[in-house]
Design a protein around this nucleic acid. Structure first.
Lengths: 351, 351
DNA sequence: GCGGATCCTCGAATCGATTCGACCAGCGCC
DNA sequence: GGCGCTGGTCGAATCGATTCGAGGATCCGC
């Protein structure tokens, strides 16, 4: 192909000035129908596919691109349907408004040297989906570039809008449900609490250094329901394997809990598997509950008792926040409602 | 914040010309260490975070962005770990080379009106991941914009590079394995074959109109192994639910096949579930095999017999093809090797 | 001490489009 | 018939950076 045809070519072909040709496409100005048609015809003739995004961007200072930064933990969470569905919701909501979602891989927190894309990719705004830690070089890099940031879950004290769900209330509902069923010895499996990843019981010191808002709020919710877990285990990731590992830790003991409340459906599925391995029946021997409301057909015929959060709506809310920021507003933090969804994995404790 | 500081500001502050300042950043020209340092110092002083991507793009004509078009079927396949992992591989491979991956949602084939992003988003190249149909308005739109395209799976006769895996050989290996075990009555569950989605037996007419290269090649592989399926069912999507639906169709009959060979692990998982529902033991009563080599921990203790394809490598190969195209070369089609992975879900037929 | 080579630095053009102000003609109104 | 308005076009500046050729200073060798 020769050089791309430009607006100037079209204008020349149509016998009008470049500015007039521009008007014909943008429609942002007075232009006679006849002229417009002539320009458009010339464009078709020349195979001109509309104004180049680049030129437009430069002029407007906007690239029409929203970056989603994928850090190490997020790359991991690419395996988590939750992030993927939220991402899908974002893309679906941003797309029709002319904004594209750019995947920006970033090195982990540790080995951070200099992420090419974080520091060079064109972005009007950036979204950190989950796993936004308080002190992140990524955050700094974005800040220094003057790129506004929106958080999908994260700390509320960073001065950037946060979109989250009613973690606390949701867990409270779940805990209440278990209490009403008669459970007293309840174990908890949490999301990674921040810092080094591990699968281990959580002690008070660890509790004090939590740097993962959702996990924190979900733990608070338990207390709201007056539930004091007999043991709390931190999972190394929100994955089935990690749940199974935590499950073994919890259930392979002399006096296992009568119910396990987990911070995600994937973790719950893992616990379910661990229980099965250990010959425990669910829910007769042990009840299991999750969080997220994922559709897990492979658990059939079981259906997880869980708290469902609106993925698509979350993506849309993040998109709204981004739009608001770009419009110069200062969007408020959003907390989306959740819903208790009873399944077949919870029942009254045995005897 | 005031106006973004520009290279001109930095140059002024450092007391040099804009061009010299540019040199200090790009390093593409002779510049004295002293000057360079002065410019960089001024930049730090002013909080200038490097040359704006926009200006650079305009000049170079490159945006540094690779679009991944997500059509209807692809949006669906966001639920499929295969696509997600390939996407992850792409992003990981493109990122360090300074290219970002832009998610470009597109309307389905049918209701195609005018996808804002497909026609306006800046892209140096576009990737259609799976589900590239022969006649797609998306394809045309891209072509008319002069954007080179790379296919992740797809027809080889479109004049664009295709990256795929050894579907045919892989299926042949799998079929051989089943034959060697003694299976003669083997059923097949295929990927959606193109056109309207349905869950139904496939007849010759349907076979003739397949518009889904991977499915086609995988069917060819069967024949290579001398295996003639007793019945072939087309799934409505590569999802567990769809597999279960197809599984019921196949297994809930008087004389069920002794083995079911599916076109994806998710489908195989669905068949497994259907078998379980029907009281059939796997692999004693029926063998089940998949394709993809997904890690499905929730199938534990079962491990699917499958053909594993290299997801990350596939993403990387697509990235390579994109780089090659951008370098002005004409990359060859790539066929990545696959590997037979024996699990616990296949065994000799009963009696 | 002077010519020539080297090394830096600078000015200006360029990429593709938007946009503001100027300009012109035609028209209505008094 | 003149004045003022307005709809439609056009010129030129602008966005932020890159790049090439020109020019100036320095330094070397003779």
């Amino acid at each position: 192909m020769t050089d791309r045809t430009t607006l100037a070519d079209v204008a020349a072909a149509a016998g009008v000035s470049v500015s007039t040709a521009s008007l014909a496409f943008s429609g942002a100005g007075p232009i006679s129908a006849a002229t417009k048609e002539r320009v458009l015809a010339a464009a078709t003739e020349l195979g001109y596919a509309g104004p180049s995004a680049l030129g437009r961007s430069l002029r407007s200072g906007r690239s029409g691109i929203v970056g989603v930064v994928i850090g190490d933990q997020l790359r991991r969470s690419f395996r988590d349907p939750v992030s993927v569905q939220v991402l899908d919701g974002m893309a679906g909501s941003l797309g029709p408004r002319g904004l594209g979602v750019l995947l920006v891989p970033a090195t982990g927190e540790e080995g951070y040297t200099d992420d090419l894309l974080v520091s060079t990719a064109p972005m009007d705004a950036a979204v950190l989906l989950f796993g936004a830690r308080r002190e992140s070089p990524i955050f700094d890099a974005l800040r220094s570039r003057g790129i506004p940031v929106v958080l999908g879950e994260g700390p509320h004290d960073l001065g950037v809008p946060v979109v989250g769900v009613a973690d606390r209330r949701g867990t409270e509902l779940l805990a209440q449900h278990l209490v009403e069923l008669g459970h007293r010895r309840v174990a908890v499996v949490t999301l990674p609490l921040g810092g080094a990843r591990r699968c281990a019981p959580v002690d008070d010191r660890r509790l004090a250094e939590i740097d993962c808002p959702p996990a924190e709020h979900r733990l608070d919710g338990l207390r709201d329901a007056g539930l004091d877990p007999v043991v709390t285990v931190e999972a190394s990731a929100s994955l089935v394997e990690a749940g199974a590992e935590a499950g073994r830790l919890l259930l392979d003991v002399a006096e296992p809990p009568t119910a396990v409340l987990t911070h995600s459906d994937l973790l719950a599925a893992g616990v379910l598997i661990a229980a099965r391995e250990l010959g425990l029946r669910v829910p007769q021997d042990v009840s299991v509950a999750g969080f997220d409301g994922l559709d897990l057909p492979w658990l059939a015929p079981d259906v997880l008792t869980s708290v469902s959060q609106p993925f698509a709506a979350k993506g849309a809310a993040i998109a709204d926040a981004v739009m608001a920021i770009l419009a110069g507003e200062t969007p408020k933090d959003v907390e989306l409602p959740v819903e208790l969804r009873l399944g077949t994995t919870t029942a009254p404790p045995r005897a």
